[in-house]
Design a protein around this nucleic acid. Structure first.
Lengths: 297, 297
DNA sequence: TGGGTTGATAGATATATTCTATCGTTAGGG
DNA sequence: CCCTAACGATAGAATATATCTATCAACCCA
C-alpha cells in the first residue's frame, strides 16, 4: 500500500510512467499496475491518461496530498526508530539558493561534529525550485529567502540577513569609494545571476527603484563563474556580503557597501511543517537556531 | 505495511496476540508474523514477550504513536475520496457519557438529515474510557466533560452546560420546594451512578463541599435504571437538567434546581486532533457548532 | 505513411502472505 | 510437585500478490 502511494508521488514528480518507475526502482508495468490498483481500491480514477500521462484527477490530487503525508510519516518513523539505536544516521538532503551556498558550511560543520554518522547531499537551486522539492519530499530542508514567495506548510528558522556589496576591483570606477548608491551601481556593467534566481530579481528591483535599469553584461546561474570574472579585475558584480567575504577579497578586489537604500533580505532554513519532524531534520533546525543566535551577536 | 501497523494497534488495545488477531480478522500466527516482520524492518524489538504478551518496548511505544497517525490518515484518505463520489457515507462511532446520552439525538438527527447515508454506532462509556477509545482510534468522536481530565491531542467543541437537579417525587421530603441546597441534598438517600463515572465524582465533590457525605442507597452505571427507580416515587436522584427533561417529568415527579452553589459543567464534542479530519467527523463538528449556538440562544 | 515514444496487457516466475496443525513454555490450581 | 490450560512461536502447504520480460496498441510528429 505505502509503496503504491510512493508510486504516485514519483508519478507526480516525473509526470511520466517510465521515469517514475525508474525513480522507484521498478519496471514500468509494475508502476502502472500499482497505480491501477490504487484506483481500484479508491473506486475512482486518479490519473487522466490518453496515450501518455496527462494529469491527476481532482481525486488524484487529494490522494497525492495524503500520500505525501503518509509516506513522509512512514519515513520519519523509520528514521526515528533507527536513531534511537544508532544515534542520528542517514542522509540529509538540503537545497540552497546559490548566494547562500557559502554559508551552508556554517551549518553542516557543527552538525557533523555532533552527529558524525549523518551524510549530506546539497543541491544548488532557485528559491522556487527549493519549495517544490520540499513539497515533493525530495529534500529534507531548504535554505532560501524567508520573506518572499511564501508557501504552504513549512517551518522557517531565520539564519542571517543578506546585505549587498558592489564587488569590483580597486582601480575600476567607484573602486575607491567607501559606499556607493544603487543609482551609481545601476551605471556599472555588471555580472549577475540569471533572472530565474530571486537574488537577481531583488537586485533588479533595487536598481529600478533607484531610477536605473538592470542590463547585466554577463549572466550565469553560477556564483563561482560570476566571481571568477570579477576576479580578473575587468568585471563587477553585486553580491551578498557574506558570500563575498567567503570567496575572499584581495587588495585589488573590494566589496563596497551599497546604500540608499541599505537593503537586506532574511535568509533562513525551511523545513516541511510536519509534527514531529524527522530526527535528522529536527537536529538541523536546532543547529540553525544556534547559528542564528551566534550570528546575531 | 499499513496492515502490520494495524496489527500492533490491535495488540496495544487487546494486549493479547490471539484476541488482537481476531480483531484484525486474521489468525494468530499471521499476526505474530506481522509483528515479527515489523521488528525486523525496524531492526529492534517492539514487544516484550515471555510466554505471553508483556508490554511494548520504548521503541514499540514510539512506533505505536506513528502507527496511530499513519493508519488514521490512511482511513481518512479513503473516507475523503469516497465522500467525493457518494457524499458522506460510512459509519460514525461515537461514545458518550451516560448523562449526555439523551442529547446525542440532538446531534445525530440533524446530521442524518444532511447526510442520510451515514450510519451511527453509539457507545455509553465513562469519560476516561472515551479518551482511551479516541486514542486508539476505536471511536471517531466522544461526548464528555470538557473541563476536567484534559488529554493529548483532541479538538473540543462545547455543546451545553450540565446543571443539576434533584429528581424526586412531589410528596417526598423536599418535594414541594422551588430550589434545594446541596447541603439539603446530602441528607436525602440517593440513587447515583457508580464511582467510576465522572458525573458521580462531581456530585460527590459538590455534596462534600456543602459539608455532607455521599452515601447513595443505590448505585448503577445505567441512567435508565436510576430513573426507573425514581419513577416509582420511593427513590430520589441527582441528574443533569437536560436529561431529566428528556426522560420526562410528571405531576408527581419533580426536577428541583440545586443551589449553593449552582454548579455547572461544560459538555462537548471531542474529536482526534488530526488535520484534516475525516469528512464524516468534520461534518459532526459542524453540527456540534450549530447545535451549540442554537442552545446558547 | 513510418519511426519513435508512451502506457497497457499477457504470461511466466518469484516472492509474500496466510492458513492449519503442532510444539514449547509458563502460570496457576490441586 | 505435577497436571492442565493458555499463550505465543514455528513448520509446511496452499494461495495470493508482485514483479519481471516481451509485446501490443495508440498516438505524435515528421
Amino acid at each position: 500500500m505505502i509503496d503504491k502511494l510512493d508510486f504516485i508521488l514519483a508519478l507526480a514528480r516525473e509526470k511520466h510512467f517510465g521515469r517514475a518507475a525508474e525513480a522507484c526502482g521498478v519496471t514500468q508495468p509494475t508502476l502502472s499496475a500499482g497505480v491501477k490498483q490504487l484506483e481500484e481500491q479508491m473506486g475512482v480514477l486518479l490519473v487522466n491518461r490518453g496515450s501518455r500521462f496527462q494529469s491527476f484527477t481532482p481525486e488524484g490530487e487529494r490522494v497525492l496530498d495524503w500520500a505525501r503525508r503518509i509516506v513522509g510519516d512512514t519515513r520519519s518513523m523509520r528514521e526515528e526508530i533507527n536513531s534511537l539505536r544508532h544515534g542520528l544516521t542517514g542522509r540529509l538532503r538540503i537545497a540552497a539558493i546559490p548566494t547562500a551556498l557559502a554559508m551552508v558550511a556554517a551549518l553542516t560543520t557543527p552538525y557533523r561534529q555532533r552527529h558524525p554518522n549523518v551524510q549530506f547531499t546539497i543541491y544548488s537551486r532557485t528559491s522556487i525550485e527549493i519549495l517544490e522539492l520540499l513539497d515533493n519530499l525530495e529534500i529534507d530542508a531548504g535554505i532560501t529567502y524567508l520573506e518572499n514567495e511564501p508557501v504552504g506548510r513549512v517551518n522557517s528558522t531565520p539564519l542571517y540577513h543578506e546585505r549587498y556589496r558592489l564587488l569590483t576591483s580597486a582601480d575600476a570606477p567607484l573602486g575607491n569609494r567607501e559606499t556607493v548608491t544603487w543609482a551609481e551601481v545601476a551605471q556599472v556593467p555588471l555580472c549577475l545571476l540569471t533572472p530565474d534566481m530571486q537574488n537577481r530579481r531583488i537586485i533588479d528591483r533595487l536598481i529600478k527603484s533607484a531610477g536605473g535599469e538592470s542590463r547585466p553584461t554577463l549572466e550565469s546561474d553560477s556564483m563561482i563563474l560570476l566571481f571568477s570574472h570579477v576576479r580578473t579585475g575587468r568585471w563587477a558584480s553585486v553580491m551578498p556580503a557574506k558570500l563575498a567575504e567567503t570567496l575572499g577579497l584581495t587588495d585589488t578586489l573590494r566589496a563596497i557597501p551599497i546604500v540608499e537604500p541599505e537593503a537586506s533580505q532574511t535568509i533562513g532554513l525551511v523545513v516541511p511543517a510536519r509534527e514531529p519532524m524527522m530526527p535528522v531534520t529536527a537536529a538541523l533546525v536546532e543547529e540553525a537556531k544556534r547559528l542564528s543566535t551566534s550570528l546575531d551577536a
